[in-house]
Amino acid sequence: MSTTYFTKEHEWVRVEGDEGTVGITDYAQKALGDVVFVDLPDAGTEVETGGEIATIESVKAASEIYAPLGGSVSAVNDALNDAPEKVNEDPEGEGWILKMTLSDTAELDSLMDADAYRAYLDTLE
């Protein structure tokens, strides 16, 4: 059983137990444009909530990915090295960025669920 949460930085995290899979939302990939490179961290990297864990680059911009929750990186999506376009094509599926072992699942309460994120997007229109 997994639940997906969202951040105001337009990232999603899908949580199963103490493992979270992190990516960017469809809104974010559209705003970025064609993704040309994803700078992935090394597995084992420790990160605090809100810390920079990856960088996504389009032709004319580079955007940081911030850890939605604290923990350590357990896996990265190596497929993005050869096919960064997956982030555009399937941001919430094959375009996932990394998995992390969460240090404190209680922090999840600070994130938005899908409905709250949709409502948040409406405020940005």
Binding site: V36, V59, K60, A61, A62
Partner: peptide, 12 residues
């Protein structure tokens, strides 16, 4: 590879 450069990445 312009995202390496100062006009986009500034202090980074």
């Amino acid at each position: 590879l312009s995202t390496r450069e100062q006009h986009i990445r500034r202090e980074k």
